[in-house]
């Protein structure tokens, strides 16, 4: 039984990614040096504060990468995810500032400010995603084009709303008691939110009817339609979830950093899509997992850390990440080709 499940894990699609993560961890732990703390020598990279920071930073990308992966599995692409993240953050920030210590609604009860603020933040993201989905299906325009447009529109809206100003001073209920809560020197909430998101997404993608439909549409849209799948509805749902993920990441930003402006998350769409792709999502649709999205985000984050630890010039980080993305896709293509060839030969050879 035990060996059976181990074998299954090894065969899983993510096995290769886990190996990459382990290798990066070993490198970073081995070359990261150690620090003195309370008279004990601790590994700099592995020390709890650093791991806490690593997972907190990974949380942003991983959460958005779940949404991006879902979109990619369905055969689409969401370029506006960074802008949705920004607009959700700005809208949420304006709400929280109003009810913050310096805002006009400072006296309001924290009991409802926090939940309403969460809904505002997530709702903004979800509405942005919904609009993407509605436009893509109603206008029948490729997602690339629609989200390229909304990428500019959503960020532009954020700029117009803030006038370019940074918005801060949020209620401590958000920044110190919820997202930013400090438990003996660690800030675990973002990582917890990420883990929960990955688990929920993994269950829904594997076991829900909607999740199956997403894979079916990405695999063959026509066949799905002919099988009675409401293709447009599923697509709209997928983009809405992607927006919702942007909103969730924005909420974490507000609680963690305590500020937002119209430049928040510039270029994030690339990191997020990169995380999805490294995590095994296929841009031709039909393949990808939530766990893969998480691992993809973690790998990219670890590479960033490695760049710091090995004292490589920061300027190189973008180049290195770009190379990693291309390599991941090429490896994926090669293995897919092998599988496909084996199938064609076994099955359709005449």
């Amino acid at each position: 039984m035990a060996t059976d499940s181990i074998a299954r894990i090894l065969r899983a699609k993510e096995a290769g990614l886990v190996v990459v993560v382990i290798v990066l961890y070993a490198l970073l732990a081995g070359f990261g040096g150690s620090v003195e703390r309370d008279g004990v020598s601790v590994n700099t990279f592995l020390q709890s504060a650093n791991q806490d920071l690593l997972f907190k930073e990974t949380a942003y990308w991983a959460i958005m990468a779940i949404g991006a992966t879902l979109v990619i599995i369905s055969g689409g692409i969401d370029l506006s995810i960074g802008s949705i993240y920004c607009l959700s953050a700005v809208v949420g920030a304006m709400f929280f500032q109003h009810f913050g210590p310096t805002g006009g609604g400072a006296g309001a009860s924290g009991v409802w400010v926090l939940p309403v603020g969460v809904v505002v933040c997530l709702g903004t993201g979800a509405i942005c995603g919904l609009l993407n989905g509605v436009m893509i299906t109603a206008l029948r325009v490729h997602p690339f084009i629609i989200t390229l447009g909304t990428m500019a529109i959503y960020r532009g809206l954020a700029f117009v709303m803030t006038g370019g100003q940074t918005i801060r001073n949020f209620p401590t209920a958000l920044t110190h008691e919820f997202i930013g809560v400090n438990i003996s020197g660690l800030y675990p909430v973002p990582a917890i939110v990420m883990v929960l998101s990955v688990i929920v997404a993994a269950i829904l993608m594997r076991n829900s009817v909607g999740g199956r439909y997403v894979y079916a549409i990405g695999g063959n849209e026509t066949a799905s339609l002919y099988s009675g799948v409401r293709v447009n509805r599923v697509k709209i749902g997928v983009f809405t979830i992607s927006g919702l993920c942007g909103g969730l990441a924005a909420l974490i930003l507000l609680g963690d950093y305590g500020s937002a402006n119209s430049n928040t998350g510039t270029g994030y769409e690339l990191n997020v899509i990169a995380a999805s792709v490294v995590g095994g999502a296929s841009l031709s649709g039909g393949r990808g997992t939530a766990f893969g999205a998480f691992l993809g985000a973690l790998i990219i984050k670890l590479i960033e850390k490695a760049i710091v630890i090995f004292q490589i010039n920061q300027e190189y980080s973008r180049i290195i990440i770009g190379v990693v993305v291309i390599c991941a896709v090429v490896l994926d293509r090669v293995s897919a080709n092998l599988v496909e060839r084996r199938m064609t030969r076994a099955g359709r050879e005449t």
């Binding site: 009817v209 066949a223 799905s224 009675g228």
Partner: peptide, 30 residues
């Protein structure tokens, strides 16, 4: 092109139109 999702396995193709009947709450009864 029109009948099968080649990226999915046999049972997933077979059950595709019947998932609404196969679900318990929101999850597929595997």
């Amino acid at each position: 092109r029109q009948a099968l999702v080649l990226a999915m396995d046999c049972k997933e193709n077979l059950s595709l139109p019947s998932l609404e009947q196969l679900r318990r709450h929101y999850l597929i009864d595997h």
